[in-house]
Simulated assay, not measured.
Amino acid sequence: MFGFNGKVQILAPESVKEQYRQMIEKANEEKMHIRRSIQLLFSEIGYLVIELLVKNCIARTEQSTELRV
């Protein structure tokens, strides 16, 4: 295995090439899984923030209505 300008070139044997390919593939899959998890987390946080804002607006509206009555 030799490195050159940030690129890896595996000359031999074929089994090492295949193991390296599988390692890179697995790392990419894990990266995508982490990215999806983070997106879901931010989506869930976004929904919670919206829910809190709506509840806050409703509470303020109810308070305003009570003061007028």
Rank of each mutant, 00 (worst) to 15 (best):
M1P: 04
M1N: 08
A27D: 07
S37L: 10
L48E: 03
A12D: 14
L48Q: 08
G46C: 03
Y47H: 13
Q19H: 14
V16D: 03
V16S: 08
Y47M: 11
G6F: 10
S15N: 06
I45C: 03
M32F: 13
A27W: 01
R35D: 11
G3I: 11
E29Y: 06
E44D: 15
K31A: 13
M23R: 13
Y20R: 11
L41K: 05
K26V: 00
M32T: 05
M32Q: 13
Q22W: 03
I10S: 06
K7Y: 07
G46S: 13
Q39R: 11
K7R: 08
V16N: 09
Q19G: 08
S37C: 10
A27M: 11
I24W: 01
I45W: 04
Y20V: 00
K26Y: 00
G6A: 09
I45M: 07
F4R: 14
A27C: 06
R35G: 02
M32S: 07
E44G: 00
R36V: 08
G3F: 04
M23V: 01
E25I: 00
I24V: 12
A12H: 13
M23W: 12
K17D: 02
M23N: 06
R35A: 12
R21F: 10
K31W: 02
F2R: 15
L11F: 10
K26E: 05
M1D: 12
E25N: 09
N28K: 15
F2Q: 12
L48C: 04
K17Y: 05
F4I: 13
Q22R: 01
L48D: 06
S43T: 06
R36L: 09
E14W: 02
R36E: 13
V8E: 05
G46F: 01
L40M: 14
Q9I: 11
K17W: 01
E25G: 00
F42Y: 06
N5L: 10
Q19L: 12
F42H: 04
I10V: 09
I45G: 01
Y20S: 00
A12P: 11
M32R: 08
F42E: 07
I38G: 02
G46A: 05
K7P: 06
R21H: 10
S15Q: 13
Q39C: 09
M32P: 01
L48N: 11
F4S: 13
N28A: 14
I34D: 05
Y47S: 04
K7I: 03
A27N: 09
I24G: 00
L11A: 11
I24C: 04
L40A: 09
Q39P: 02
